[in-house]
Write a protein that binds this DNA or RNA. Structure first.
Lengths: 161, 161
DNA sequence: CACTGATTTCACAAACTCGTGAAAGATGCG
DNA sequence: CGCATCTTTCACGAGTTTGTGAAATCAGTG
């Protein structure tokens, strides 16, 4: 029987960070950025300094620098200067999941635009090729709409619960 | 004013294939697989042989072989032997978008499982780290559920329209 | 206004991905 | 059965990506 211990198992947490970061990486997310993301997520502190991140992940300062810059552009991590200290604190955006899901929707937009632009070149409206591309566009439009609604719903649930 | 010509603009179609394949590639999809996918989508023929794909994309037989194998594993493309010919025909799965979206949901499952497995190791239920990871898991569970509903809805709309 | 310590930038090296050509492996046809 | 043709496998090379160390930059502090 597994006990619900009140103490952290640091070793297990470290394994988790590496494991889930790899899963993100397989999906195209930069590896080091993923490791930083989950180091922040599993930290009990509200934020970590670049130095702390480097130490916990055993990575160079340069790698950390690149990763937090990347995460900052995605608005997943915010940088917070600490008054009276040279070190900045990096913390997860509180609505990180909402943000990252929203970002994905920008991708839909550009795929839709590209698809739209080729329809004319695909011959008569009844050509199989044109029908296929039009269906893809329709699917993306559908997803774009519905996902927006979903994210609203999630936000509402969060706020309530 | 752009005319709605009944003839294909092959050059424009070729540019489209390359452009949208690159957009997919940026997002982590193998480049050649994306090119094959869109070559099939924009073909007026119901399917193409490996040879035709190689010719249209100016790629080696080996590259085509790898790409269709990849697309086959994702169930995006089906291979169809042509009776009385050595050539097989590759055609897009008719429900390709449904399929690829469903595949993405497998990813959610494994992320959920990984997150679930670390909760115990994150100390007391009230620790900030544990709360963050639990929220991520909840978000993924939410998405998984809702997306399933969305895909049903899409299928229904398709069948009807 | 130097000094100290943190962070960023830069050039390079290791690892990985991707597509090619060549060789080996299938498969229909005579 | 063996030829002709198409497809897959394999080893290599080009091109990227990714993280490191070192140097440069930046910001508090005495």
């Amino acid at each position: 029987m597994t006990e619900d211990s009140p103490v952290r198992d640091e070793e297990a947490v470290r394994r988790f960070v590496e494991q889930i970061a790899m899963q993100f990486a397989e999906w195209g997310f930069p590896r080091m950025a993923a490791r930083v993301l989950f180091a922040l997520m599993t930290a009990d502190e509200p934020g970590l300094t670049a130095g702390e991140l480097g130490e916990r992940l055993d990575a160079s300062a340069a790698a950390i620098s690149g990763a937090v810059r990347y995460l900052g552009q995605l608005r997943l991590v915010v940088r917070e200067p600490v008054p009276g200290s040279r070190r900045d604190l990096y913390r997860l955006a509180d609505n990180a999941w909402y943000v990252s899901a929203s970002a994905e929707m920008g991708l839909y937009k550009s795929l839709i635009a590209t698809s739209e632009s080729v329809l004319e070149a695909l011959g008569g409206p009844r050509s199989p090729a044109r029908a296929r591309v039009a269906e893809m566009r329709d699917f993306l439009l559908f997803l774009q709409d519905e996902m927006a609604g979903l994210l609203e719903k999630w936000n509402a649930t969060r706020a309530a619960g």
